[in-house]
Computed example of a mutant assay.
Amino acid sequence: MSLYAVAGFLAAVLPLVATPGASLTLLVQRVTTRGRREGLPVVLGTASGLYVHAALAALGLSALVMRSSQAFAAVRLAGAAYLLVLGISAWRGAGSGPGGRTAPGRAARARRSTYAQALLGNVLNPKAASIYLTLAPQFIDPGRPAVRQIVILATAHAAVITLWLATWTFILGRATRAAASRRFKAVVGRISAAVLVALALRTAAA
C-alpha cells in the first residue's frame, strides 16, 4: 500500500475524528472527574474498537450488517441504548467522585471499566463500521492482499485518533487542575452526561 493511499485515507477520516462524539465526551467526563490518567483507557478502548471494525470488515460481517436493515437497526439501537446508559451513569455520578487518592485496586478496576465502555461505545457505532465498508475500500489496491491493507489503514486511523484524544487529555488535565473544585467537576460531569444522552437519542432517531 502506498503512502499516498494512507495519506488520502487519513485526510478523509480526519474531519470525522475531529467531530465531537461519544469517545471525546467520555474522555471529558473521565479526565475532569477522575484525573488525567483516566484518559489512557478511553484512548486504548477507542483504538481497539477501530481494530474490531477493521477485523469485521475484513471478515465481511460488517457488510452483512450494513446490508440488512434489521441488523443495522439492531446495532444502531444497541449503540443508542448503551450511550443512554453511559449518560445516566455519568449524571448520577456527577459530583460524587472520590475526594482524595483512590486505592490502587479500585483505580485499576475503574480504568478497566473505562476501557470497556470506550471499546463498546466504538464497536456499537454503525458510523464507525461504515468507514471500513464505504471509505476504506476506495484506498485499497485490488492487486494486493486486502486484509493487510485494512490493518494498515486501521493502524493509521488509530494513530490519528490517539493523538487527537491524547491532546485533549493534556488540555483537560491542565484545565481541571486550574479549576479543581467539586462543583466544577459536577458541572462538567452533568454536561457530559447530557451530551451522551443527546448522542443516544440522535443515534436512535438516525
Rank of each mutant, 00 (worst) to 15 (best):
S96M: 14
I140S: 03
A128H: 09
G97M: 13
Q149T: 03
L86Y: 07
Q117S: 06
A110R: 11
K127Q: 12
P137R: 02
A158N: 12
Q117R: 12
A154N: 10
A154R: 06
S130L: 15
L119D: 00
L120K: 01
L84E: 00
S96A: 15
L133M: 13
L133S: 02
A108N: 11
W91H: 10
A94P: 01
N125I: 01
I140V: 11
R109P: 03
S113C: 09
A103E: 12
A159H: 04
L124Q: 05
L153E: 09
P137L: 02
S89A: 14
R144W: 07
I152R: 12
T114E: 05
R111P: 10
G121N: 07
Q138C: 00
V160D: 13
A146V: 13
S130V: 15
L135P: 03
W91F: 14
R111Y: 13
R111S: 14
T134K: 05
A108W: 13
T134V: 14
Q117D: 06
T114R: 01
A154D: 10
A103F: 00
P126Q: 05
R144E: 14
I150N: 06
G105F: 02
L119F: 14
A118N: 04
L86R: 03
L124K: 10
I152N: 11
D141Q: 07
L120C: 04
P145I: 10
G97W: 10
V85Q: 01
L119N: 08
K127C: 05
P126Y: 04
V147K: 12
G100K: 10
S89T: 09
I88V: 14
L124V: 04
A129P: 08
L153G: 07
I161W: 13
A90W: 01
A154F: 00
A110H: 09
T134Y: 13
A158I: 09
P126V: 07
G105H: 01
P142D: 04
A146Q: 15
A110L: 11
A146C: 01
L119G: 04
G121T: 06
A107F: 09
V85S: 00
V160S: 12
R111F: 13
R106P: 07
L86T: 04
L153D: 11
A159D: 05
T155Y: 00
P142C: 09
R144M: 14
Q117H: 05
L153M: 11
R112M: 15
N122T: 15
F139V: 10
T114Q: 04
P126A: 02
R106A: 15
I88N: 02
P126M: 09
P145F: 06
Q149M: 03
L120G: 03
R106F: 13
G143V: 02
R106T: 15
I140M: 08
T134C: 10
G95P: 08
I150P: 06
G93Y: 10
G99M: 08
I140N: 05
I88F: 09
R101Y: 05
G121V: 05
A136G: 08
A118D: 00
V151D: 02
Y132V: 08
G143F: 02
G100P: 08
T134W: 09
S130H: 06
P98R: 15
A118R: 00
G100N: 10
A116S: 09
G97A: 14
P142Q: 04
A94W: 00
H157P: 02
I88L: 12
Y115L: 15
R109S: 14
T155V: 07
W91M: 11
A90P: 00
L153K: 08
G121H: 02
R111A: 15
T102S: 10
L120I: 12
A146E: 14
P145H: 01
A108G: 06
G95N: 04
